[in-house]
Design a protein around this nucleic acid. Structure first.
Length: 292
DNA sequence: GGTAGACCTGGACGC
DNA sequence: GCGTCCAGGTCTACC
């Protein structure tokens, strides 16, 4: 079965896949040197399927080996449109970048869309797993969580979907800490999964919320394990670019580019990108940090 | 509001 | 191979 979806132009599948590291985290899968992207997806009826995505002239095509119901196809279309931000429009941002050489090629490359997971629960878990660790640690912890708690793709027992919140919720801190090896993040992930599973926290509602940026940020930082950096990252994934993902790398790059390498504080980074207003997170993210 | 210390792991480094 | 140090955000306690 093949499903075709169109995107608001300009669109570049490669730019979305390479927008940040998410494509390297399970249950996403990429093949070195190839432009396609796979994802192990669990439908609402618990069926697990593999989505093989590749670029088409107008958007993306999704190849699926398994038989899927009409409702399932609808669900997949909605999920992929969200994951690849197919319907987002960045023209206003592109117009602003024309006068900035460090952002000179973003429109040409159709950059701006950030790859996201089907659910905000998954993106929140993954974001927490990026904090205070190396990238290899994030890959390891995500893989471990998916392998241990995900549902297997039929016939391919080595490939799993991202775990349902309930699966993690029914686990315990000791298992997550010592077997999944999430370390001190274990209670954060467990608490998040239990809140979502119990219906006390409706993360998915935030995807289409009319909350202000500040309200959204406050809501996200109320989650244990989500601080300023993690909340800003999640807001970017939600299409709000008014917060900056300031980590140690950001402080280093901004210091080198704007402050002659002197020590700086997060407020200094904010100040540099303030002129970009509601697009400042994206301006920072897509900035060409290479030396001229 | 600002700051220090703890949290956990992997990688780099020296022996 | 082993021990030590450090980097990486967030939370909590304290001032």
């Amino acid at each position: 079965m093949k499903i075709e979806l169109s995107a608001t132009p300009p669109f570049s599948f490669t730019s979305v896949v390479n927008s940040h590291g998410w494509a390297r985290l399970a249950p996403f899968k990429t093949i070195e040197g190839e432009d396609d992207l796979a994802y192990i997806f669990r439908l609402g009826n618990q069926q697990v399927v593999k989505l093989d995505m590749e670029e088409t002239p107008n958007g993306v095509s999704i190849a699926i080996q398994e038989e899927v119901s009409v409702d399932g196809v609808k669900e997949i279309k909605t999920a992929v449109a969200w994951m690849l931000a197919l319907n987002e429009n960045f023209q206003e941002f592109y117009n602003l970048t024309k006068s900035e050489s460090k952002l000179g090629r973003v429109e040409e490359k159709a950059q701006g869309r950030l790859l996201r997971s089907p659910t905000l629960f998954e993106d929140t878990v993954k974001t927490i797993l990026t904090t205070n660790t190396s990238w290899s640690g994030t890959i390891r912890m995500t893989e471990s969580l998916v392998t241990q708690f995900g549902d297997p793709l039929p016939g391919r027992t080595e490939q799993f979907s991202f775990p349902d919140p309930g699966k993690i919720a029914s686990s315990n801190e000791d298992t997550l800490r010592n077997e999944t090896r999430l370390g001190y993040r274990a209670p954060y992930i467990l608490d998040l999964a239990r809140q979502v599973d119990a219906g006390k926290l409706n993360l998915e509602a935030l995807k289409n919320s009319d909350m202000s940026g500040d309200q959204l940020h406050k809501q996200l930082t109320s989650i244990k394990g989500v601080g300023n950096y993690a909340a800003a990252n999640l807001m970017m994934l939600l299409g709000h670019y008014e917060y900056l993902t300031i980590d140690s790398w950001a402080l280093k790059m901004v210091s080198q580019e704007f402050f002659n390498g002197d020590p700086i504080r997060p407020d200094d980074v904010e100040g540099v990108f303030e002129p970009w207003g509601k697009w400042k997170g994206l301006a920072y993210w897509l900035w060409d940090w290479s030396e001229e």
